[in-house]
Design a protein around this nucleic acid. Structure first.
Lengths: 213, 213
DNA sequence: TTTTGTGAACGTGTTCACAGCG
DNA sequence: CGCTGTGAACACGTTCACAAAA
C-alpha cells in the first residue's frame, strides 16, 4: 500500500461527512460519480482515494453507504477516542472547549491550561483552568491544541512535546517546530483571510479553483 | 504575469508574518535563504513566489525587509479595509468578534447576524446582533463569515451572495456553493482534526522520543 | 563573491481512459 | 450494460542549477 498523500486524507474526511449526510437521507448505495458530485471533485479522484485503502465498491453497482462510512471511520481513526489538552483559555480556547463537534469526532478535552494568573483556577466547562507548567506526562495527553498568542506558541508546543503528546493542532499564526514523530496540523485563519483579501483585490472577477459551481 | 497559484498566495501570507517579525528585530535586509529557513521552505521557492509579482531583491544583497513587507502588504490587499459581516453569534462567531487580529489585518466587522430570537438584539462587542434576514445590499458588505451550524450554512451563504458580498469565509464543516465570482475560503478545523486522528492512527516506524522530565 | 531571477528538470497529485468484473 | 479499480498521460507546483547583476 503506497504512501497516502495529505490531500487524500483531507478528502476522505470530506467523503465521510457526505456519507453521513447521505446515510441520513436513507440512501443505501452511492456511486463514485454521485459522491464526487456532492463533494466537488472528479469521480476518478474518489475511486483513486478509496483504492489506497482497499476495494470497497462493487463494480456495476457502487459503494454501500454504511459500509464505506464505517471503513473511512476506521481509516481516519475516529473509532477510538483521543485525550486532548487545550492551551490558552482565551477566546479561541473557550470556543473550542464549548464546541460540541469536538467530542463527536472522538476528541475528549481533559485539561485546559493557561499561564495567566487571572485565568488559572477559573471553571472552563466541566474543568478548571490549570497553570501551564502543571502539564506533565502524567496527563497522558494524545493531542495538544495551541490556542495561545503567537509569542507563547512555541514554548507551549515544547511543553506539550515534553509531556509526550503525539499530535498538535495549532491555531496560532506562527510556524511551530516539533520533532518529526509529532504530527502537526495548522488551522490558518489568518492565511485564509489574507488569501481572501488577495482574491478580492484582483481586478477581474476571480475564477478561483476553490470557488466551485 | 502568469497565473498565481493558491499555494503562492498562502506562502506570501507567511512571508509577510516573518517580515513583520524580522522588522521588529531591527533587521534591514534579508536573503531568500534566511527567509526560507524561518518559514520552512526552500530559498528557490521564496524567489519564485516573489518573482510572480516583480523583482524586489538586489543581487548579491538580498531583500530590503521594510520594502518587501510593504510590497507584499499591497499584493495581499492589506493596505485597504474590508467590511465584514459575521453570521452566527454562537461560540465561534463570538470568538471571531472578540479576535483583535481581525481588525489588524484590515477587516472591520460591521455587523453580526443570527437567526435565533434569543440572540437577536443582544450586544456583541460594539454591535448588536441583528436578525439574519435583515442583511441586505445596503449593508455594503465585502466579506461574509459563515459561523453557523452546518445545516444553516448554505442558506446563509445564499443570503450573503444576494446581499452582494464578494468573498465568503466558511467555518461550517459543509461544502458551500457560490457563484464563481464570489471568492470562497474554508477554515476546516474538522478536517485538520481528522487528519491528525489519521496520522496518530498510523503505526509509526519511529516511535516518539520518551518524555523527559 | 554573494545572492537574485529564471528556464529546465523533476516529482507528485489529478485526470483520462479502459480493462475487469459484477 | 454500469461502475469500479488502475496504469498511463497529463498538469502543475517544486527544486535545481546557472547566468546575470551588485
Amino acid at each position: 500500500m503506497a504512501r497516502i498523500s495529505e490531500s487524500t486524507v483531507r478528502r476522505l474526511s470530506h467523503y465521510y461527512r457526505v456519507l453521513e449526510e447521505v446515510a441520513g437521507e436513507g440512501q443505501r448505495v452511492i456511486s463514485s460519480h454521485r459522491l464526487a458530485e456532492r463533494e466537488g471533485v472528479t469521480s476518478a479522484q474518489v475511486r483513486k482515494d478509496l483504492s489506497c485503502f482497499g476495494s470497497f465498491g462493487r463494480r456495476g453497482l457502487g459503494y454501500d453507504v454504511r459500509h464505506l462510512r464505517e471503513q473511512i471511520r476506521g481509516i481516519l481513526g475516529l473509532s477510538r477516542r483521543w485525550r486532548v489538552a487545550i492551551a490558552g483559555a482565551g477566546h479561541i480556547g473557550s470556543a473550542l472547549l464549548a464546541y460540541r463537534g469536538f467530542g463527536e469526532q472522538g476528541f475528549d478535552v481533559v485539561a485546559v491550561f493557561d499561564s495567566s494568573p487571572q485565568r488559572i483556577g477559573r471553571p472552563a466547562g466541566d474543568l478548571a483552568v490549570r497553570p501551564m507548567n502543571s502539564l506533565s506526562a502524567r496527563d497522558a495527553i494524545d493531542v495538544g491544541v495551541v490556542a495561545t498568542p503567537p509569542g507563547a506558541a512555541q514554548d507551549v508546543a515544547d511543553a506539550m512535546v515534553a509531556a509526550g503528546v503525539r499530535g498538535i493542532l495549532n491555531f496560532a499564526p506562527r510556524k511551530l517546530h516539533v520533532p518529526a514523530a509529532v504530527a502537526l496540523r495548522h488551522v490558518e485563519m489568518t492565511v485564509e483571510l489574507e488569501s481572501l483579501s488577495f482574491a478580492l483585490s484582483q481586478p477581474r472577477a476571480g475564477r478561483r479553483p476553490r470557488a466551485v459551481e
